[in-house]
Design a binder for these strands. Structure first.
Length: 505
RNA sequence: CGGGGCGUGGCGCAGUCCGGUAGCGCACCUGCUUUGGGAGCAGGGGGUCGGAGGUUCGAAUCCUCUCGCCCCGACCA
């Protein structure tokens, strides 16, 4: 036994290529998807583990992606009439306890401050797991009449939900997010708003992230604690699992009743306001990784990439001046077009090493400029991911490269979206009518399984027990099958709606 | 919170069975030569072996207790 172990060690030492492979490359997705994910997050410097269990440090590369997401989303929120505000981190426990389902939903995940200023607190404070309660309490103060409605606020913040099992970006005890909270005079208007924001998320995911979700309504067992109805965006990752990547909730009057959020109507009656809340989090960064990443590392859609074009000057011989000057000139020309460019002029690193590094970090395009190119007036372009006729390196005249770069970035963005859409459809199974078939698909390929459902929650339990898949959503019309299912997947009952099943993160 | 695994320079690991005062690869630093897909040579720095206690002349190694992390399950964005 011992002998064998030593032998293997010896063998390993004598094969340096293996060591190199192990250290320089990621575990392939096909071998172990979650190892691939974890390694990628660390190696591409998106994030690092912090000393506190279940929390992570978001490094500049990851944070810039988040900032780019924030900017795009924030513009969309503003365009739909919202303003930003900031509500406090600490919330009286009594607030959270007011809404019965809400407190039940969050109790296991609450972090509570019981001691401060060296003294036990008389009333412990919860670190916000979400801010419905404190915000409703404030809205109750601010809203008197229908003239104060609708009130449309958003906040960018951190929240804490104590997690037993954590994964960078996908599930951490503290995460960054955005939470929108609105108050309306009518149920219909609030529900419309809920759907509007769901659609904002969907548009963002498609247009910016190239991560096309299936959108729909959550079942009662999956909805947000305290909501009347929850809607979600369900994006399919490369391992064919679903990632709930954005939710929008119609809260009805559940919170306004608990917080006395009333207003006087035009006719002089006092009524409870109707609320919505909606959020996306840094989880989206994880979604981005699992949607586009490959075995080389991250692949970033141009619209969100911190750097869209990295220029690698080939520094040969004594005089690096001309090549660096050319790189600067190209950078200026591209920057003037609004393109984010970085020159990697590190002279202690070989070009090949830089190529690997920027590929690992997911930069959409690399431009190489060397003495040979200077002589012929060309540059070398390499695209992070190849589609169709693309070649690994393209030699193009400098003027053409400058003129076409915006188009190339747009095209790349569109190709990523197209590929993700195709993957989603290729792994969607429709017309499935019995449980065994569903279980077979979930167990082998995974993916989205569309079936009929009677609305009976017992069916969800059975399927979860049997396959670990959950009801992701009751899809919006656009995602429904051409042929409407007639039978409930659970057995003999008739189907009243089509639903999507998948294993989820 | 149950089951499994692991804590040894920044990273990945060997050494633990059988106790003798710590080693390998990568990374890092210096110099020279290099640079169009993971450079070469030479020299160099860095570790109270997760922590505490014990056994022993002597502990990374044996014993006890602890802490932490990762993976698999039950709960969740």
């Amino acid at each position: 036994m011992n002998c064998l172990k030593k032998y293997r060690t010896l063998f390993w030492i004598l094969t340096p290529k293996n060591i190199m492979a192990k250290e320089k490359n990621l575990t392939p997705r096909s071998e172990d998807f979650s190892s691939w994910y974890n390694e990628l997050v660390l190696r591409s410097e998106l994030a690092d583990y912090s000393p506190v269990r279940g929390s992570m440090v978001i490094r500049p590369w990851g944070y810039t992606i988040w900032e780019n997401m924030q900017r795009a989303l924030d513009d969309m929120f503003k365009a739909t009439g919202h303003e930003n505000a900031y509500f406090p981190l600490l919330i009286p426990i009594s607030f959270i306890e007011k809404e019965k389902e809400h407190v039940e939903g969050f109790k296991p995940e609450l972090a509570i401050v019981t001691n401060a200023g060296g003294k036990e607190l008389e009333d412990p404070l919860a670190i916000r797991p979400t801010s419905e309660t404190i915000i409703m309490a404030m809205y109750a103060k601010w809203i008197q009449s229908y003239r104060d409605l609708p009130l449309l606020l958003n906040q960018w913040s951190n929240v804490v939900r104590w997690e037993l099992r954590t994964r960078p970006f996908l599930r951490t005890s503290e995460f960054l997010w955005q939470e929108g909270h609105t108050a309306h005079a009518s149920s219909g208007e609030a529900e419309e708003h809920t759907k509007l924001m769901l659609n904002v998320y969907r548009t963002f995911m498609e247009d910016w992230m190239a991560m096309p979700p299936v959108t729909g309504l959550k079942s009662d067992s999956e909805k947000f604690a305290g909501a009347v109805r929850s809607y979600s965006c369900e994006a399919m990752m490369q391992d064919n699992r679903a990632l709930q990547s954005g939710t929008s909730h119609f809260l009805g009057q559940n919170f306004s009743k608990q917080f006395q959020l009333t207003f006087q109507t035009e006719k002089g009656n006092e009524e409870y306001a109707w609320n919505t809340s909606w959020g996306v989090s840094t989880r989206l960064v994880g979604g981005l990784v699992m949607t586009h990443g490959d075995d080389q590392g991250l692949v970033l859609p141009p619209k969100l990439s911190p750097v869209q074009v990295v220029i690698v000057p080939i520094l040969k011989g004594e005089d690096h001046g001309p090549v660096l000057e050319k790189a600067d000139a190209i950078k200026d020309a591209l920057t003037a077009k609004g393109i984010r460019v970085k020159i990697d002029a590190r002279d202690f690193m070989s070009p090949g090493n830089k190529y690997y590094e920027w590929e690992r970090k997911g930069v959409p395009f690399r431009m190489e400029i060397g003495p040979k190119d200077m002589a012929t007036g060309q540059v070398v372009l390499a695209k992070r991911m190849l589609f169709g006729e693309d070649s690994r390196k393209e030699f193009v005249p400098e003027t053409e490269a400058l003129a076409t770069m915006e188009n190339r970035l747009d095209e790349f963005q569109a190709q990523l979206l197209e590929a993700a859409k195709r993957r989603r459809e290729d792994n969607s199974y429709r017309g499935i009518e019995n449980l065994d078939e569903l279980a077979e698909i979930i167990d082998t390929s995974g993916g989205y399984v569309f079936t009929g459902w009677s609305g009976d929650p017992a069916v969800e339990d059975i399927i979860k027990e049997k396959t670990k898949a959950t009801l992701r959503c009751i899809p919006e019309e656009e995602f429904q099958s051409e042929k409407t299912p007639t039978r409930c997947i659970g057995g003999e009952k008739d189907s009243t709606m089509e639903v999507v099943w998948a294993r989820a993160y």
